[in-house]
Simulated assay, not measured.
Amino acid sequence: MRLLIAAALLALSGQSALAACTGRDLMAALPPERAAAIRAASEAVPYHEGLLFQAERGDQRITLIGTYHFPDPRHQATLDRVAPALAAADALFVEAAPADEDRLAKALAADPTLMVDPDGPTLPERLAPAEWDALAQAMSDRGTPGVIAARMRPWYVALMLGVSPCMVRAMADGSGEQGLDRMLAQEAQAAGVPVRSLEPWDTIFGLFAGLSPEEELDMIRAGLPAAHYADDYAVTLTDAYFRGEVWSIWEFGRFDAYANSGLSRQAVDDQLSLVRTRLMDDRNRAWIAPLLQGAKRAGPDGIVAAFGALHLPGEAGVLSLLEDQGFTITRLDG
């Protein structure tokens, strides 16, 4: 579950995660039968592989880039490949344009209650002692003392559990290296290409609205068992991304949760359905309107759209949704 949430996270800034993360690719060590099951499940999903695509309808063109939000030196090759299309584009669409990222950061600084619950019961009061002990250690590993984590909102804690300690340490170094989303935004700005957001700046605060108290805690419980090998998860996620094996990231996380989360298969499936619906499918559908409007306005100049790679595949993925709108989809990196 940690891998799924990390892969679907909103854009985060930071320094080179790869340089700070050491671990093993867990997919490479899978038993043959589980590897085959993951492969079969992935292959059943539309557009399960690939990071670069083009969507065309008449004289309208959208270049689509599946991104990885954390820094990695291998992003430069992708940036070099898409730079000509980006320089010629009418606009770049990303999950959150730099101005909206700044607005979000200012809102969080001005109102800590967006992430912290100052009034309700604390997480130590809501979780079993063993669960809280494991969570306090996991959050401490990520630079957040237990006394602070105790009052954090469960959705934020669950998202933090999806970021490995090595990535947190790397982001704290502040050397200025960026994830692919920000690299693309900087390239667009340097070329005079407008950068536009696909969704409102405060979308993150509504992603988990309306969850029951138990559903909130289950999000945390789902991420705890893998906390001690989080750096391995980071390497696994990164390597799968750069192989273009996008949906295998999701299926690996699902089978790993079945085996190691301590939750029933039904509970795992419920959590996956929640994460997929809230973090991916609902947002994908909301992004189609601005993409269509942008492509229509741009005409032959086209637009470029860059967002987390897990938004590309699936029947409710952006590629299939554009196909439903009459676009022809062509993979560019296959």
Results as ranks from 00 to 15, higher is better:
residue 4 L to A: 11
residue 6 A to F: 05
residue 7 A to C: 08
residue 7 A to E: 06
residue 9 L to G: 09
residue 9 L to T: 03
residue 16 S to L: 08
residue 16 S to D: 15
residue 16 S to R: 12
residue 19 A to M: 11
residue 20 A to S: 13
residue 27 M to S: 14
residue 28 A to D: 14
residue 32 P to K: 12
residue 33 E to A: 15
residue 33 E to V: 10
residue 34 R to D: 10
residue 35 A to P: 02
residue 43 E to N: 00
residue 51 L to I: 14
residue 51 L to W: 05
residue 53 F to G: 01
residue 54 Q to T: 15
residue 56 E to G: 10
residue 58 G to V: 11
residue 60 Q to P: 09
residue 62 I to R: 05
residue 64 L to I: 13
residue 65 I to Q: 10
residue 67 T to L: 06
residue 67 T to W: 06
residue 70 F to A: 15
residue 72 D to L: 02
residue 72 D to G: 07
residue 76 Q to M: 05
residue 77 A to S: 13
residue 80 D to P: 04
residue 80 D to Y: 03
residue 81 R to V: 04
residue 81 R to W: 09
residue 82 V to A: 07
residue 84 P to I: 03
residue 87 A to Y: 04
residue 91 A to D: 04
residue 93 F to W: 14
residue 97 A to D: 03
residue 98 P to T: 08
residue 99 A to F: 02
residue 103 R to I: 02
residue 104 L to P: 01
residue 105 A to F: 09
residue 105 A to S: 11
residue 114 L to E: 06
residue 116 V to W: 12
residue 118 P to H: 07
residue 121 P to F: 13
residue 126 R to V: 09
residue 130 A to W: 03
residue 131 E to M: 07
residue 138 A to Q: 12
residue 138 A to I: 07
residue 142 R to L: 09
residue 147 V to I: 15
residue 148 I to P: 02
residue 149 A to M: 00
residue 150 A to G: 04
residue 152 M to V: 12
residue 153 R to E: 13
residue 157 V to G: 02
residue 159 L to D: 13
residue 161 L to H: 07
residue 162 G to S: 05
residue 162 G to P: 00
residue 164 S to V: 08
residue 164 S to P: 13
residue 165 P to Y: 08
residue 166 C to R: 01
residue 174 G to W: 07
residue 175 S to E: 14
residue 180 L to M: 00
residue 182 R to G: 11
residue 183 M to R: 14
residue 184 L to E: 06
residue 189 Q to L: 14
residue 189 Q to H: 11
residue 192 G to I: 13
residue 198 L to R: 00
residue 207 L to P: 07
residue 212 S to I: 08
residue 216 E to C: 02
residue 216 E to T: 00
residue 217 L to A: 10
residue 219 M to H: 02
residue 219 M to I: 04
residue 220 I to M: 11
residue 221 R to D: 13
residue 230 A to C: 01
residue 231 D to A: 09
residue 237 L to S: 11
residue 239 D to L: 12
residue 242 F to T: 07
residue 243 R to I: 09
residue 250 W to M: 13
residue 253 G to R: 02
residue 254 R to K: 08
residue 261 S to E: 03
residue 265 R to I: 12
residue 265 R to S: 13
residue 266 Q to D: 15
residue 274 L to M: 10
residue 276 R to Y: 10
residue 278 R to M: 03
residue 280 M to D: 03
residue 286 A to W: 00
residue 287 W to R: 09
residue 291 L to M: 08
residue 296 K to I: 01
residue 297 R to M: 00
residue 300 P to L: 06
residue 305 A to C: 02
residue 307 F to Q: 05
residue 308 G to I: 01
residue 312 L to Y: 10
residue 313 P to L: 03
residue 314 G to I: 12
residue 314 G to F: 12
residue 317 G to V: 00
residue 320 S to R: 14
residue 321 L to T: 10
residue 325 Q to L: 08
residue 329 I to F: 14
